[in-house]
Design a protein around this nucleic acid. Structure first.
Lengths: 334, 334
DNA sequence: TTGTACGCGTTATCAG
DNA sequence: CTGATAACGCGTACAA
């Protein structure tokens, strides 16, 4: 592999000059620039990015931590991020945290030890304190789907109370009044917010929230299944079920069907996230759109702007949810 | 950030010795090892992985190229790969090729320019010739889901003709004789193989393959939809439809339902891949399992073994498909 | 067992 | 506009 040194010899210039033309930096006369580029192509020269990193103290890599590499939610997010970075010649190193505090911490340390210039984190288990502490370190990071007041400018989030509100309002508009709710783990901010929005809508309709119709799930399929089972057996009657995310809605649908309920005739179901497979379940699931792809891209833009000083479109940290109507919610016969 | 130099000073030893204890390499007396480690923790020393890479000519990074970062198929694959590598302190750089020849090439060049020690490629559009040429370069790579005779030992593949055979056989066993088939793009080896297996099963049942019941799809949802539409309007009658992958099966199901067919009563449908959402469609889709997660892990083991000389479990390049029975195929009434 | 000295391929700081 | 030359932080023959 040719080095900058050989190029300089062949072009009859110094190392510094070659470096200059590579980086389009200082003023170089067209003549010498020409000589150098010719030498480069002749030798098939390729810069050694590692040497560049060492010398410039910039690895051009950003670490991306998600809970799972599979899972319908993270794919579009990674996709938006990778696309944005590759256009700029940065590369992304991925790691999975598995929603587990220790593993999330390990992943972060791993990414930092890899000399990432910045981190994009979608973490769930790690504490606010840890992140606040981390923010004092030298590796900058953005948070997706997590709000910490002290770090607010680096938090890219969805307006979850609005989302919860939209879901409930839509169901209410269809005439339902007995509405069950399977929430996420309520120690999570997003789960709380969605529930808050839900209650707001109820209040607008002068309906009081019935604690008997609440089940705290885990954002996973099994939680939805268990939730439906529990509510079906122990709770009061309900004609609609709102789940705090699509996976739980899916689990609930499967279990409801096992209980011989006809969907959506005997039970309207509403999800949240608009994960791609919601179109394919039966009946197609009405849900709330979570623009995770755009949010990923925005996280990338944040890094591009704040770490690499690139020009980017204006940054935005709060995103809006949107109602997606399909066929899983029926008008309630009066 | 402390460097090896400061550690050596504090420990009262030379740079080389510090380096030695870091790499557990040469013989170092317990006493000095002790001194050094103490100095390291006291300074909170962290090795600079970039400097290590430059000096050792090993970046400890492997490039992973998939078609899409989203999409149900690649998630489990990336997951298996990332897990295997992180255990060994290697990191994975991801890139998306978008099933497009030019972009796949760009991605490969990008990864190579990033000094990856090895590449794991799931490519679709790139030519065999390009890959054979690439194999002469200095960056080793493995191929997933692609067979090239000249590169056979680095091809990790599924026995697709067997998979095609299993799918057809199962449907035949249920008494169907009029079976439509939506294939993948037939210039792709895996699409061909699946169809070959399909025909084999038919032959075993003394049934001749009816070209009228074949539609060439694109492995995507729309292809399945178009395929069903076409076969439904133009083809002979059929009581079962086998699709060469789950996405097309999903598209076909949606369209069949739009055509007022009751599923699975009026049409049995079979998929291929066992992508995770097949459990959630309605009716739950019978399909062929593609152990992509394991295959990803195997690709990682290949790299660990061949590039990093780590001990790994025995390598395996050919994987077996498996029949997954759910509820989308009904016994055909005689 | 330990230390010296050089090399890895660039960038960056000065002079000129 | 261009050229020396010193970092960058570490691995590794080679010598001691």
């Amino acid at each position: 592999m040719a080095t900058i040194y050989e190029v300089s010899k062949l072009a009859g210039v110094s190392l510094a000059t070659v470096s200059r033309v590579m980086n389009n930096n200082a003023n170089v006369s067209d003549a010498t620039r020409e000589k150098v580029t010719r030498a480069m192509t002749e030798l098939g020269y390729r810069p050694n990015s590692i040497a560049q990193s060492l010398a410039s103290n910039c690895s051009n890599s950003v670490g991306l931590l998600v809970s799972e590499l599979h899972g319908p939610f993270y794919g579009p997010m990674m996709s938006g991020i990778e696309t944005a970075f590759r256009k700029q010649g940065k590369h992304v190193i991925i790691a999975a945290g598995h929603s587990n505090e220790e593993r999330e911490q390990q992943a972060i340390e791993f990414l930092i030890s890899r000399n990432c210039d910045a981190l994009i984190l979608h973490v769930e288990a790690i504490s606010d304190d840890y992140l606040i502490e981390l923010s004092k370190g030298k590796t900058p990071f953005v948070l997706i789907n997590r709000y910490i007041a002290e770090l607010s400018s680096r938090c890219i989030i969805l307006d979850n109370v609005k989302g919860g509100y939209l879901a409930a309002k839509y169901v209410l508009e269809q005439g339902h009044t007995d509405i069950a709710y399977i929430s996420g783990p309520l120690w999570k901010k997003d789960a709380q917010d969605r529930l808050t929005g839900h209650k707001q809508a109820l209040a607008e309709y002068n309906l009081s929230f019935n604690e008997q119709l609440l089940y705290q799930g885990d954002f996973m399929e099994d939680g939805g299944a268990a939730g439906f089972q529990y509510l079906h057996n122990n709770g009061p009657q309900f004609t609609a079920l709102i789940c705090a995310n699509d996976e739980m809605a899916t689990g609930a649908m499967a279990t409801a069907r096992e209980c011989k309920l006809k969907l959506p005739e005997q039970l309207s179901i509403m999800g949240y996230d608009n994960v791609f497979f919601t179109r394919h379940v039966y009946p197609p699931l009405s849900t709330i759109n979570y623009p995770i792809n755009e949010m990923g891209r925005m996280a990338a833009d944040w890094v591009l702007s704040n770490v690499y000083q690139k020009n980017t479109p204006p940054l935005q940290t709060l995103f809006e949810p949107e109602l997606i109507i399909r066929q899983s919610v029926l008008t309630h016969p009066q």
